[in-house]
Write a protein that binds this DNA or RNA. Structure first.
Lengths: 201, 201
DNA sequence: TTAAAGAATGAATAGGAGTTCAATTCTTTA
DNA sequence: TAAAGAATTGAACTCCTATTCATTCTTTAA
């Protein structure tokens, strides 16, 4: 034998893989998935298109990983917010406002993750993450019902509804509002969520 | 001149156009937009593919018209429900349950209209119709606030939120529930909507 | 009946983006 | 330094449908 992968090569391959992912992530963050053609990703990553295929079997696999990476961050952020100290209402408010704030910080990315038309297999990832959000909210709702803060309800449905509610308001009124109006819009959404879960007075 | 379109020809052309639209509508209703390739539409309509182009400049135009046709029916149905006699709460309940019932009656179509990945120009139609739903709900919310049935709120935001809420719950929990569970799920969604708009006791 | 104008046909074409692969360059070890 | 094994390259290829258009029917009016 005259060749075996050394740590150095391993490291460089890891770095190439990382570059490709980062390039794709950046393109998606700027122009959505449609802007991330393989040739564009390759150019941005500084490799040939063929090289991408040594790291990702298909474009869909690459996109799925980009989707997971981006979405997981959002889910984690919401999870942290939901896990803070305080009443369930406060934690729900924080979780929701975290979602809103982060979506506003990168609206194109938010659009890509929430609503951009994508390949069905990437859409499957989207559904996974919508469920991940829903699970977090569902747990919070259950807790709030036990503590008596929220009225009795089907937590699974309310959780899904909140996810849909947040997505739609991010794409609709909020994105087109002026910067000064944003805070009040965000406040409206939070108030709406609290009403929806039936916070008792 | 030796040829001029007569009423007979006019009528047949109208009928061909109608066949094409109907074929497309049916395919979309069964398998979504992805199942409605031009060749499939032509076959279903009993014409050659080239013929479609004498009636619709591009596939996108055809799809947009199919989308509008289908969506308008849904919007009209909700509008009727919202315009019945009764309290604003009752009318909201009816509007929401109308939406749910109709979505359940044709789930594939509901998916195509609500969430199937489509061309951006068809997506634009989708946004139009989401706004149409929202407008109906917004008017109802305004009325309910004036009458004192609903708490003060930003009706535009709540309306958008309800649209998102309905769409998400149609795709999530409801579609996968058993037939017997459907009614209770629908009831949960209605109750949720009433809480969200802040129905006063 | 016939010529002009339209309408319909469907095989051929176009175009765009993902994917492949023969040739090339790089790494490693003997 | 050489040879084997990998990795990289990017132009060529593939695939898939939407779209076109030369040809063939139909219809109309003289």
């Amino acid at each position: 034998m005259a060749y075996r992968e050394t740590a150095l090569v391993r490291a460089r391959k890891d770095s190439v893989r990382h570059s490709i992912l980062e390039a794709a992530r950046s393109l998606v963050g700027q122009g959505g998935f449609r802007a991330a053609q393989m040739s564009a990703v390759a150019a941005a990553a500084g490799v040939a298109t063929g090289t991408i295929y040594r790291y990702f079997p298909t474009q869909i696999d690459l996109f799925a990983e980009v989707f997971r990476g981006n979405s997981q961050r959002e889910v984690d952020a919401m999870q942290s917010a939901a896990a803070t100290a305080g009443s369930c209402s406060q934690r729900l408010s924080l979780a929701v406002s975290t979602f809103i704030t982060r979506a506003l910080r990168n609206r194109r990315l938010a659009y890509a993750l929430i609503a951009e038309p994508v390949d069905p297999q990437v859409e499957a990832e989207r559904l996974n993450y919508r469920q991940a959000y829903a699970k977090i909210l569902e747990a919070l709702l259950e807790e709030g019902m036990v503590s008596g803060e929220f009225v009795r309800q089907d937590a699974r449905i309310t959780a899904a509804a909140l996810v849909g509610l947040l997505g739609e308001t991010m794409l609709g009124p909020l994105l087109h509002s002026t910067p000064t109006a944003r805070q009040s819009v965000a406040d409206s959404i939070i108030a709406l969520c609290l009403r929806a879960v039936g916070v008792k007075p």
